[in-house]
Simulated scan of single mutants.
Amino acid sequence: MSQTVRGVVSRSKGAPVEVVDIVIPDPGPGEVVVDVIACGVCHTDLTYREGGINDEYPFLLGHEAAGRVSQIGEGVSNVAVGDFVVLNWRAVCGQCRACKRGRPQYCFDTFNATQKMTLTDGVELTPALGIGAFADKTLVHQGQCTKVDEAADPAVVGLLGCGVMAGLGAAVNTGDIGRDDTVAVIGCGGVGDAAIAGAALVGARTIIAVDTDDAKLELAREFGATHTVNATSSDVVAAIQDLTDGFGADVVIDAVGRPATWKQAFYARDLAGTVVLVGVPTPDMTLDMPLIDFFSRGGALKSSWYGDCLPERDFPTLASLYLQGRLPLDKFVTERISIDDVENAFHNMHDHSKPILRSVVIL
């Protein structure tokens, strides 16, 4: 029998979100109903509300979530009722060309639930990133559920579902940062700080945080930054070179995703160094640079998709490191809010009077 629960819905571009009744169907084959415990407010949710992803309104927002499995459909084998899980949007198919070549972290045909959640009048909802977790319950594909140690705080480990994994994975998986490397991270929001935490975790020697906000730069030090550069008062490229013996950093991560910051990353890396783009550009952005510079500097220019993660491999490991006190995931939770406070959390994303890494909805 279907269930009616509360959910946060965006009905039209730019309109304030609403908490309304939504209908969760019984899980079909391969599907799972998860009772959501906590869900982070990610900038991607705001982008959905603003029409920056697509125009398939109404959206059921929320995707950085942890919860407990309450129902399973036919054929579900990887989770059972009662399991504590973190939700993800990379449920690998195992059959696409990336999966068959042993690269499931790039899966090109990831799974979502087949059935639709709806409003009470039957209008179908589009769940954010195939999850839709600003709700008491949500319906997902079994592959979108990753079991982790239930001793972990749901508000903390739920953030592995998107922003934290994107940043940390950009450093560890995409950037392949190693012990004694020099690293620079441009943009010190949640994703950038996660990249800094990842670089610190694997033993980078020098970690340079770059931002325009001194408060954010100070917070970046708590995640492992050894040096900071304020981009409003310093030449970013020159500052990074000065802090790396004049050579530039081995790995530079652009967590902003703008032409100007990407160019800074490109020229601030050492010869044969690596640039990782994890900040998401808008479709209208273009880059104009001399082609000879790409050839003469060598190295690697990479884009990081979801931190090039494999949830079933990475989530349990990172949750374990957090529980061991080796990864400060709890520092990403700035505030805990109710389901009625999501719209206000969106407004706070633009309030620079205090840095908010993540507001987390507690269900």
Rank of each mutant, 00 (worst) to 15 (best):
S304R: 04
V278P: 01
H227Y: 11
T118L: 00
A66G: 06
D153I: 00
N88L: 06
Q115N: 13
D83I: 02
D211K: 10
T334E: 05
G161T: 13
A260G: 02
E31P: 09
G82E: 11
Y48D: 00
I22A: 09
C162Y: 10
P16V: 09
Q142I: 09
T174R: 10
L318W: 15
G130Y: 03
G187I: 09
T182L: 06
V256Q: 06
D121C: 12
F294M: 14
I207F: 12
S70I: 14
G51K: 08
T146G: 02
E18V: 10
Q71W: 07
G143W: 08
A152F: 01
D235W: 04
V140A: 06
G299N: 07
T334P: 12
G73H: 07
V361A: 03
A166Y: 07
V280H: 02
A151H: 11
G130V: 04
I207C: 12
G178V: 10
V81H: 03
D288Q: 14
I131T: 13
M349D: 09
V36F: 02
A171R: 01
E218Y: 04
H350A: 10
C309Q: 11
C309W: 02
P355L: 04
T274A: 12
P58C: 05
V36E: 05
F59R: 01
I53V: 15
F294G: 13
D55E: 14
Y106M: 12
P27H: 00
V76H: 06
L125H: 02
G198A: 09
D45K: 10
G73K: 05
V20A: 10
L139N: 04
S338V: 05
S353Y: 03
E343N: 14
V191A: 10
G224S: 07
P259Y: 02
L323N: 06
V251I: 12
A238N: 07
L217R: 03
